[in-house]
Nucleic acid binder design. Sequence first.
DNA 1: CAGATAAATTCACATATATGTACGTTCGCC
DNA 2: GGCGAACGTACATATATGTGAATTTATCTG
Lengths: 246, 246
Amino acid sequence: MIVRQAANVLEIMEFFAQVKKPATLAEIADHFGWPRSSTFNLLATLSEKGYLYEPRPRAGFYPTPRWLAMARMISEVEPLPQWTHTLIADLSAETGETASIVAPAGVMAVFIDVVESQAAIRYFATIGHRVPIHATASGRALLLQYSQEERDSVYRKIEFKQYGPSTPISIEAVETELRNSIARGYCQSFADYSRDLAGAAIPLPIGDRRLSVVVAGPEFRIGPKIAEVAALIARTVDRLRPKAAA
Amino acid sequence: MIVRQAANVLEIMEFFAQVKKPATLAEIADHFGWPRSSTFNLLATLSEKGYLYEPRPRAGFYPTPRWLAMARMISEVEPLPQWTHTLIADLSAETGETASIVAPAGVMAVFIDVVESQAAIRYFATIGHRVPIHATASGRALLLQYSQEERDSVYRKIEFKQYGPSTPISIEAVETELRNSIARGYCQSFADYSRDLAGAAIPLPIGDRRLSVVVAGPEFRIGPKIAEVAALIARTVDRLRPKAAA
DNA sequence: CAGATAAATTCACATATATGTACGTTCGCC
DNA sequence: GGCGAACGTACATATATGTGAATTTATCTG
């Protein structure tokens, strides 16, 4: 069950992150198609908790810096090492595609750092974006780091759907693809989940954290050179990863 | 009306900001005294939206960097000028008390930047903290920047409560205190709102934004030297504020 | 490795909550 | 400066939602 008002809080914040200026009750209500009275209650709640204020009279609400203060506290714990950001920045620069660091979240894989391609046609992904762990290159690069038992436990929860023509729709299919990935030396996906999207990924264990790096873009651009891209990822990781670490 | 699940989202995030490590469903549920099933729904919603993930298997949930990414986007709009932070840092260092930048939010005043005192006994305030605009030094320093009509409009919404012995409990009382403040050259409060708390504040208009600076601490420490503190605030603002600006 | 224990998940129902409607206030326009 | 329209606010009611109990899944213990 989805908790509507919890989701609405997030929606409101994303709204402010987009428009980047104060908004009145009416504007927010209209934007989301919410009733005024409901919007009123929500804004009142957020204000009361110290997360919204009125920068100038009658110009509407805007988030207080409290969000930032809290996000900083949360994120200063085990931040990703600096070199991982350099990694995807370099990869994105060299390939012209979108590069990301990905982490597991149950049956999904979450993007926890992203450097976007500058191309007009590109893979549009944001931090927090989620994709099925079994039907994506990045996800399978995570699964490769699991034990057989852990994978089985994940499989049990997966609802296999035919997202595209090549989506693996059974445990067998996924396991086979994992074996192929090992043989190949990298994980790949050709529109297994998102239409027209291809990507190459490799596992990126850091300490006891299981992450992966992925470079993804339109099939027609990535497809022909996927092996090269994968090799580039591997080389770049070798270059940037501190040698001391396990 | 308070929107419970909206507030809960904030509570959860504050929880993570405090404990700074992943937490399982059970831990979160127990911490707040929420039913497991409700907690499940909330966590599922936050996860689905890409705000929580599972850093390592079976170690529970933790917020994704998405919070940070969003908070940054929101806060890069009209950030407070750098010198305002220097201002309160200097004030806190020199006085040994807590110094803050404050902004209006309806009938309340919100702390939008805070540098805390290092003293054992101190004014504990955080960014986002809210106090009544009419019953605090910082709030009245905001009201001083309003026109008479604007103030009247605020007064109409205020619910006058006797927070302490010296709380102004009428429009008259507030207006009188404002006049005294002008004569005095600064705003002050002696436990008008918070017990044992005294503070000195002055208006701090920046562009078309109406802000104030306040230094606050225990009555027994601040009380005797409140005039000095106020003078120090004024001098420090003069020193740090760029001369070019209006 | 099996049994026990704890955690996670599902589901149907009672209840807390979102909202339609109505009222008061503020603002823009002539 | 007064009128009209838009905005913000309160409240009662129907309804979406939180929750206790039951089920399944995972983890610990001997």
